[in-house]
């Protein structure tokens, strides 16, 4: 008699824990005619809880040294590498060819490493010492925007997800991600990778569910500082822009797809989720040329 396989219950990931949705609801996405599983149909309350977790983790995450954040991103890549078979299988389950699936996992690992490398460098690229005319030392540095809500790309369940999350957290932000609705498996498995990778709970929160249902809530939440929308549905984009006005959250539309391309390897993806802070301080002029003493 063949062994009875143990089936996996897919959960969501909030504040470093794996609850099912508080709503008790689920949905059954299919690929190749087969049901992928009973996936959590997250509610607006799950989103709220995830945002609370992201907010409370943000200050601590941003306060970690850039070197430390870099190591944590690298650690995610290491753990992902160790579990590559599982991801390849899930991608195949979700409809990918084997070669394609392997490529997607490889690229995801490499992309994490790419952004791990940026953690302690982007600041040098985007900072400036500004030569003001008065006797002041003036400099501008990037600072994380804060809590970022991400509507992850629908078509790329792992690479698309990683390509949005990595630059977001590399820059000291925390995030709440709504995974691909029809290809959600890798997102939850990726959460399992995160929970064993030294990523503090709450830095990355991953929900599954219905995009249409949750999109307006993502747009409207007053404690979300920025929102990344992946896709190109004009109606959704308009909804998001309008909803974002309430607290003037930053909206970033990434409609490209093409996650395999180098376009998703750029420090500008980090800088798009940064605020510029400019600081002034007087420079004493005593004993210097033009001394006013």
């Amino acid at each position: 008699m063949s062994r009875i396989e143990v089936l996996k219950t897919y959960k969501i990931y909030i504040g470093g824990k794996f609850p099912r949705t508080e709503s008790g609801r689920y949905y059954q996405p299919k690929a190749n005619g087969k049901v992928l599983g009973n996936i959590c149909l997250s509610s607006r309350k799950d989103f709220r809880n995830a945002t609370v977790a992201a907010r409370s983790a943000q200050v601590g995450w941003a306060a970690k040294s850039a070197y430390n954040r870099s190591q944590i991103l690298y650690r995610i890549a290491e753990i992902l590498e160790g579990r590559r078979t599982q991801f390849v299988e899930e991608l195949i389950q979700q409809g990918s060819k084997k070669a394609q699936a392997e490529k997607e996992v490889n690229l995801s690992i490499d992309r994490l490493i790419y952004f791990a490398g940026w953690c302690d460098k982007y600041m040098q690229i985007f900072s400036a010492v500004n030569p003001v005319a008065s006797s002041h030392f003036n400099f501008s540095v990037p600072e994380p925007t804060g809590v970022v809500a991400i509507l992850a790309p629908e078509e790329s369940g792992l690479l698309g997800l990683v390509s949005q999350i990595a630059p977001t957290i590399a820059g000291g932000n925390t995030c709440v991600v709504l995974a691909s609705e029809n290809k959600p498996l890798c997102s939850i498995t990726f959460a399992e990778v995160l929970s064993t990778s030294d990523v503090p709970g709450g830095v990355i929160n991953i929900l599954t569910g219905n995009r249409k249902e949750l999109t307006p809530h993502f747009g409207r939440h007053m404690d979300v500082n920025a929102l990344i929308y992946c896709g190109n549905n004009p109606a959704e984009i308009k909804t998001i822009h309008e909803a974002a006005v309430d607290n003037l959250k930053r909206v970033i539309i990434r409609d490209g797809g093409g996650y395999v391309s180098d376009n998703y390897e750029s420090p500008y993806l980090i800088s798009s989720l940064q605020e510029t802070k400019t600081t002034w301080h007087p420079v004493e002029k005593i004993g210097a040329a033009g001394s006013g003493y």
Partner: peptide, 15 residues
């Protein structure tokens, strides 16, 4: 913009 030990200073080079 944060002014330390000064306030309301502006300059074209300063974001």
């Amino acid at each position: 913009v944060v002014w330390a030990n000064t306030y309301n200073k502006f300059d074209p080079t300063s974001p």
